[in-house]
Simulated assay, not measured.
Amino acid sequence: MVDKNKPTPDKPQERRGGWLSRFAPGVRKIVSRRDTPDNLWVKDPDSGEMLYRPDLETALWVTPSGRHMRINAPQRLGYTFDGSAYEPIDTPDVPEDPLKFSDGKPYRERLAQARKAAGRKDTMAIGYGHVGGTAAVVIVQDFSFMGGSLGMAAGEAFVKAAREAIARGVPLVCFTAAGGARMQEGALSLMQMARTTLAIQELKRAQLPYVVVLTDPTTGGVTASYAMLGDIHLAEPGALIGFAGPRVIETTIREKLPPGFQRAEYLQEKGMVDRVVSRADLPATLGTLLSILMGGIRRAA
């Protein structure tokens, strides 16, 4: 006896859409996976709770538990400037892979992958606009681009931002986020610590404010240079700030570190950070500080 429901070469089994499409032919198109983004839900790294992405975006990527999640450079610039309006400033080009470095994969390939993923040339992004009504140049370090590592492109961008601020006669605000120097550029990356320090001295000679906002994480050579040379240092809640990481320190000294060691709140208590400010309050806080530092003379019309 032949089973009429059994699929045969002449009669393939109907699988497309299943029973639901037979009863409601248009439903499959409505609930297609193409209409449901894979990243619609984001896991809270603290509680493990699944958070609805649009709600998280509305909250500026701050979770209900208070975790300030890492954000990219365009988001940071948009959150900082009044009305999210600013003039992008191009970052300079630098020689690529001068050392012909490979750590199992050529540096050029790593750069190409990072650029494709981030949609930018390197870790730094610069914008000019108004923050709380005061004109300013803002430079942002994007941790999503190779861990925000400090290399020639980042150093050159910082120098460009400082000189742009001097040319326009406005303050410079720097949002830091880095895992350290970019090892693929060797000593050339370490030289950027000195170059950025000299750029800050140019700002000081021009009597223009330099304000730093430390975000998670700010470590390595960035902490040892332009991240700690501001006139005022703000930090986002919970940001990891230091030179070497806690695990490296504990392994070296063979002692347990105090609770919250190297976090923004701990550093504020010890005097290394002037104030810990939530992301939602940063634009207003920066606007007030910049207005005071500039004597209130460069306000938006």
Score class of each variant (00 low, 15 high):
Pro258Asp: 02
Leu240Arg: 06
Pro258His: 05
Leu234Pro: 02
Asp231Ser: 10
Gly242Tyr: 03
Glu236Ala: 12
Gly242Pro: 00
Thr223Glu: 10
Thr252Tyr: 11
Lys256Trp: 01
Ala244Gln: 13
Phe243Tyr: 15
Ala227Cys: 02
Val222Ala: 08
Gly245Met: 13
Thr252Arg: 13
Leu240Phe: 15
Gly230Tyr: 12
Pro237Gln: 09
Ala235Arg: 00
Glu236Ser: 10
Val222Pro: 02
Leu234Tyr: 14
Asp231Leu: 10
Ala244Glu: 15
Thr251Ala: 15
Met228Arg: 12
Leu229Asn: 11
Gly238Trp: 05
Ala239Leu: 01
Pro259Gly: 09
Pro246Ala: 07
Gly260Val: 04
Asp231Cys: 11
Ile249Gln: 07
Ser225Lys: 02
Leu229Trp: 04
Leu257Gln: 07
Ile241Met: 10
Val248Ile: 12
Gly238His: 06
Gly221Glu: 14
Pro237Thr: 09
Gly245Tyr: 13
Pro246Trp: 06
Ala239His: 03
Gly242His: 01
Gly242Glu: 03
Pro237Glu: 02
Ile253Met: 09
Ala239Val: 01
Leu240Asn: 14
Pro258Glu: 07
Ser225Asn: 06
Pro237His: 07
Ile241Trp: 00
Ala224Glu: 11
Ile241Phe: 05
Thr223Ile: 10
Ala244Asn: 15
Ile241Gly: 09
Glu255Asp: 14
Thr223Trp: 14
Ser225Ala: 13
Glu255Leu: 11
Gly260Asn: 02
Ile253Trp: 11
Pro258Lys: 05
Leu257Val: 05
Glu250Trp: 04
Pro259Tyr: 11
Leu234Trp: 01
Phe243Ser: 04
His233Leu: 13
Gly221Val: 09
Gly260Thr: 06
Arg247Gly: 11
Arg247Leu: 11
Pro237Cys: 02
Ala235Ile: 06
Arg254Leu: 13
Phe243Gln: 11
Gly238Lys: 01
Val248His: 07
Glu250Arg: 00
Arg247Ile: 09
Phe243His: 15
Ala239Ser: 10
Leu234Val: 01
Arg254Lys: 15
Gly238Asp: 03
Lys256Ser: 10
Met228Glu: 05
Glu236Phe: 15
Gly230His: 10
Tyr226Met: 06
Gly260Met: 02
His233Asp: 08
Ala235Leu: 06
Glu255Ala: 15
Gly238Glu: 03
Ile241Arg: 05
Ile249Asn: 04
Pro237Asp: 07
Glu255Pro: 01
Thr223Asn: 12
Gly245Val: 14
Gly230Arg: 08
Gly260Ile: 08
Pro259Gln: 07
Pro258Trp: 03
Gly238Val: 06
Gly245Arg: 11
Thr252Ile: 10
Ala227Pro: 03
Glu255Tyr: 09
Leu257His: 05
Arg254Ala: 13
Ala224Thr: 10
Ala235Phe: 08
Glu236Arg: 01
Phe243Thr: 13
Ala224Met: 14
Val248Glu: 06
Tyr226His: 14
Ile249Pro: 00
Arg247Trp: 14
Thr252Trp: 10
Gly245Asn: 14
Pro237Lys: 05
Ile232Met: 12
Ala239Met: 02
Thr223Phe: 15
Ser225Ile: 03
Ile232Leu: 12
Phe243Glu: 09
Met228Gln: 14
Glu255Gln: 15
Gly242Lys: 01
Ile249Leu: 13
Gly230Gln: 09
Gly260Cys: 01
Leu229Ala: 13
Ile249Ala: 07
Ala235Lys: 01
Ala224Tyr: 01
Leu229Tyr: 04
